[in-house]
Amino acid sequence: MSDFAVSEVGLEGGRVLLSATQLHKRFGDNEVLKGIDFDVPAGSVSVLIGPSGSGKTTVLRSLNGLELPDSGTVRIGDVSVDYGAQPTKKDVARLRAQSAMVFQGHNLFPHLTVLQNVTEGPLLVQRRPAGEVRTEALALLDRVGLASKAEQYPFQLSGGQQQRVGIARALALRPQLMLFDEPTSALDPELVGEVLAVMKDLAGEGWTMVVVTHEIRFAQSVADQVLFMDGGVVVESGPPEAVLENPQQPRTRTFLHRILDPI
């Protein structure tokens, strides 16, 4: 259980868009979330860091119901799900509709063109007019630097380009909240920068983002709030300059040391 659950940043940043309260999750004997609490103010970027197995991805996936915690509440805007109270599929789907996700493995639809990947949600789910969706999708692709690739299939793109399509696909849903699950971990090092640059732009435009990543420098320059997780709890959280440059907890220090000075 963390004592640092509600950060100063959240309180200062105005309206809280996302609120996670007391998330608990257990896989068999393994308790992966031991009571997670945090708030994300509207328009802010929160970065979750921590060693693998710390539960950060599970936290992120709890925010859109890809993972169902055993108990705890997630509220995004005015939609709230109490996982302890056996929410229906419909309840979880409503919560899920508040956010969009960018996956580690991009999970683009291989049988659809780049443009179709982006328009699929707005057309089929949100049922917006085709002309408008197409124009907006092309604009989004342009924004991630891929307007020329609209008619290609995902396999024809590089890993970085695929991930940028994944971002455009998520943005096309016009979500209140963008979730990023280690968006650069599966990429070749030279392709990481183009993806992070797009994310940085989004942050600058005022998107509310929750990012799981190992990119400490990205956190330093973009995050409003950093949450360091280990062993299923948020060990330490706060603005990047506090958590990353002057960590209070030994576990945070050890982790950062290992990441920044691996040899």
Binding site: A93, R96, N107, E120, G121, A170
Partner: peptide, 19 residues
């Protein structure tokens, strides 16, 4: 991951299957 991606763009079971 294909199921999950479809879920996160809001598709239901039938649409996910079909598309």
């Amino acid at each position: 991951g294909q199921w999950e991606a479809a879920l996160t763009i809001g598709m239901g079971y039938t649409t996910t299957l079909r598309r």
